[in-house]
């Protein structure tokens, strides 16, 4: 099998994978805020709006440690 063929299979395979990943990402973005323990992505806009050093983080790093 020549390099061109590897190239073609590689291209097809990777593209198919990325298309799949993109669509599942879109599904994830829009479904997660309805689930328990999910996140509303739109909240992350507040990271910029409330960015004083004394403001409470939107998702504090300490959250993880408690779990």
């Amino acid at each position: 099998m020549g390099i061109a063929e590897y190239q073609a299979y590689g291209y097809f395979g990777l593209t198919a994978f990325l298309v799949f990943a993109l669509y599942s990402y879109i599904y994830h973005l829009y479904s997660t805020d309805k689930k328990d323990g999910g996140h509303d992505y739109e909240n992350y806009s507040n990271i910029a709006l409330n960015d004083d050093i004394s403001d409470a983080p939107v998702s504090p790093i300490s959250d993880d440690k408690e779990k």
């Binding site: 990402y25 973005l29 992505y41 739109e42 992350y44 806009s45 507040n46 910029a48 709006l49």
Partner: peptide, 28 residues
């Protein structure tokens, strides 16, 4: 612009999800 426009205008990004999708689209 994703930082300074929302910050200066006091408006949240119209769609944060769209910003993420555009990011991956642009990268690819």
């Amino acid at each position: 612009i994703y930082y300074f426009l929302p910050k200066e205008s006091g408006q949240a990004i119209y769609s944060y999800k769209l910003s993420l999708l555009s990011f991956w689209g642009l990268m690819f």
